[in-house]
Design a protein around this nucleic acid. Structure first.
Length: 417
RNA sequence: GGAGGGAUGACUGAGUGGCCGAAAGUGCUCGCCUGCUAAGCGAGUAGGGGGUGUAAAGCCCCCUCGAGGGUUCAAAUCCCUCUCCCUCCGCCA
């Protein structure tokens, strides 16, 4: 949730919002509702003050004076009875409008939309396409069965099998070990959460269409472990030296992929269910930018450590998503498509999510909201698919990246006869 | 699934209708004391919001005792619903 006061008082804050895609007029609607709220609030508070004074006087009055005073005080109750519901209504209006407003883009974030991100750096080359693309290799080596997946669960579901599973487990273990070395606390979080958790994490109402819902139990399947990780410190008040707190969550992720019909239909590039190791950091508000750099560096160490060629993109304002103020993507070269595709991503939410969560840090001049950041340590399925192309060998076999060999116990998968 | 007990400030914990935003203790801050440290002594110390200040300070007010609603002139305290924690029984591993 945004800071409505800053929206009112700081032109730069408003400008950061306007650089994202916002429905015209929305901002002014919130400000108008907020002004009405404050006017009503003043009235209600004045009445309540009078009522409180009258009630207090009754308590101190002699018993024989009380009946008359009680009768006189009864009037407040009635007047408040009409004003308070109006105030509640206006407050709800402010809230529901404010929830629709995205976090302002950081001043460093480039202008524009999907195609306007800037390349920060490029690491590695752009190898030619191998004999089989990732989907064909997955099928040929018995790694992926999309057909049976579709029979069991529908399109965009797949069985991952054989050595691909061992590769997945190796990836998770290696990545987790790297994170632990960096001071991250490993977590396997709940993947079903309440609506409130979705909202406080910054996903509802804006991304509700992407989320699976279990109506019977009023629970939602998370699209990333970022959601339950954010709930881990809901309402907490930290001492400054407790920060930063770094968590590495491993979980399955579920996404409806609404609005992606016909996109990325081959293989397991875009599926409804995948496993992911996610970084989530609670940072002191003065130091979130350096934490962001640190998360990015960790992502580069992981992707680079696997030997995948990539480039780092500074994502443009219009492409950030509601909660992020700044975001870097790591795009890896996908030889079969001859272009870079997103593999990991890291965002700084500043106080956007922390405001709803009520997570703060003690500070010399008052308590402040903490900043939250998150980044993909390893999107397992998609990482596998890049390996299928980059580590494919001339005979149709697959080499295993050196860093994973200690975890797989084998260094190559032979082609099938 | 059934029965009961509980949730109070950073933490422990008292408080059954007005004198309670809340005893006491711990922690923390400042001061005193003290070769150093520990201990001791004194004072202060909840959060959020609105108003008034150019700003900071200050001042005034409102809300908050798990969450939401209700009763009452008045609720931490009484009633209802929800969430979470604990104990017992049953069921499953």
């Amino acid at each position: 949730m945004i800071d409505v006061r800053r929206l009112r008082d700081e032109p730069e804050y408003r400008a950061g919002i306007e650089r994202k895609r916002v429905r015209p007029g929305l901002i002014d609607e919130v400000l108008a509702a907020e002004e009405e709220r404050r006017n009503l609030l003043g009235e209600v508070e004045r009445l309540r003050a009078e009522q409180n004074a009258a009630s207090k006087a009754i308590g101190q009055a002699a018993p024989e004076d009380r009946p008359a005073r009680i009768e006189a005080a009864a009037g407040f109750k009635e007047r408040l009875g009409t004003l308070e519901p109006r105030l509640a209504e206006v407050e709800e209006t402010v809230r529901s409008l404010a929830l629709q407003i995205p976090n302002p883009a950081s001043i460093e974030t480039p202008d524009g939309g999907e195609d306007d991100g800037t390349v920060v750096r490029t690491v590695g080359g752009q190898p030619a396409a191998p004999a089989l693309d990732h989907a064909a290799l997955g099928e040929a080596l018995g790694f992926v069965d999309s057909e049976r997946g579709a029979q069991a669960s529908g399109s965009r579901f797949a069985y991952v099998m054989n050595e691909a599973v061992l590769l997945e487990l190796a990836l998770v273990q290696w990545v987790m070990a790297e994170l632990v070395r960096e001071g991250f606390t490993p977590v396997v979080p709940p993947v079903l959460v309440r609506e409130q958790t979705m909202e406080e994490a910054g996903f509802f109402p804006t991304d509700r269409a992407q989320v699976y819902e279990l109506g019977e139990d009023e629970l939602f399947l998370v699209g990333t472990s970022e959601v339950p990780l954010s709930a881990l410190h809901r309402g907490d008040l930290f001492d400054p030296d407790a920060l930063p707190l770094r968590y590495g969550g491993f979980s399955s992720c579920f996404r409806r992929e609404a609005g992606t019909y016909g996109k990325d239909t081959r293989g397991i590039f875009r599926v409804h269910q995948f496993d992911k190791v996610e970084m989530f950091v609670w940072a002191h508000p003065d130091r979130s930018s350096e934490e962001h750099e640190r998360i990015l560096a960790t992502e580069e160490r992981i992707v680079g450590g696997l030997g995948l060629p990539y480039r780092v993109m500074d994502i443009a304002a219009g492409d950030l998503g509601a909660p992020a103020a700044r975001k870097f993507d790591l795009e890896v070269w996908l030889p079969s498509e001859g272009r870079y595709r997103e593999l990991t991503s890291c965002s700084n939410y500043l106080d956007y999510s922390a405001r709803r969560l009520g997570t703060r840090v003690r500070d010399a001049d008052g308590n402040r909201l903490v900043h939250t950041l998150n980044g993909t340590a390893c999107a397992v399925g998609r990482t596998l698919l890049f390996l299928f192309e980059h580590f494919q060998e001339a005979d149709g076999g697959l080499a295993v990246p050196d860093v994973l060999v200690p975890y797989t116990g084998f260094s190559r998968v032979e082609p099938r006869a």
